[in-house]
């Protein structure tokens, strides 16, 4: 029975997050529309896409995890027949699903646009690296939201997310093997790029493993 209660909590969070998820997708689509303007539209497109995804990651975690503690709805949630561990699993599933919906829609949208727009296919590997970077950032804010009550840590994480995204995009374009191929007509997956993608996936796995370890050792949930 507690399994079905867990899925009801997942459904509850998806229901509460639905408006913002739709908003993030809309902002992202506006960003994608700028891609049609060619090189002049690249910057606004990237800015709007980053904004949409960071907003979604922050909203999902702060509204459905941090706010439940601050607005004292956590005690109500935990009065249901599920353990704090199951509650945390429900939060991870719901937050990840809420984030992945615009992430997948916008990632696929951007890749389709790149493939049909004047921008060369050489941008595809860089875009994939950028999308995985957003996924890492989401995993980080998710883990911090579930592990700490500290506004300072959550604030620092959000600030570091937006700053580090700019740095990531700046540095990845300056890696010689990537720089040489990113404006080309075909997608080339260099060794450096494959290493970055592997590192990004490993980082997401590490963050989620550390989160699971931390939650398993947690002794107080309210």
């Amino acid at each position: 029975m507690s399994g079905s209660v867990l899925w009801r909590f997942v459904g509850k969070d998806l229901h509460f997050n639905r408006g913002f998820t739709a908003g993030s997708i809309a902002i992202g689509f506006v960003g994608l529309a700028f891609v049609h303007l060619g090189p002049a539209g690249t910057m606004p497109a990237i800015t709007l896409l980053i904004t949409a995804l960071i907003l979604q990651a922050v909203f999902v975690c702060t509204r459905s995890i941090v706010a439940e503690r601050k607005e004292r709805t956590l005690a109500f949630a935990l009065s249901f027949p599920l353990s704090p561990g199951q509650y945390a699993v429900a939060k991870v599933i719901a937050a990840t699903a809420s984030f992945l919906v615009p992430w997948v829609v916008l990632a696929v949208g951007s890749l389709i646009l790149i493939s049909i727009s004047p921008i060369g296919h050489g941008m595809v590997p860089v875009s994939v690296a950028a999308w995985l970077y957003f996924l890492d950032e989401f995993c980080l804010i998710l883990a911090v939201s579930l592990c700490t009550d500290s506004d300072t840590w959550i604030g620092l994480t959000i600030a570091s997310m937006s700053v580090s995204t700019s740095f990531f995009l700046y540095f990845i374009q300056r890696i010689p093997s990537i720089q040489a191929t990113m404006s080309g007509p075909t997608a080339l997956w260099s060794g450096a790029l494959i290493a970055i993608l592997a590192a990004e996936l490993a980082l997401a796995t590490l963050i989620l493993a550390l989160l699971a370890y931390r939650l398993a050792r947690k002794r107080e949930f309210i």
Partner: peptide, 12 residues
Amino acid sequence: IGYVSEEMRLFG
């Protein structure tokens, strides 16, 4: 169990 606490709130 039915649980009610002064510190508890419903989803606003």
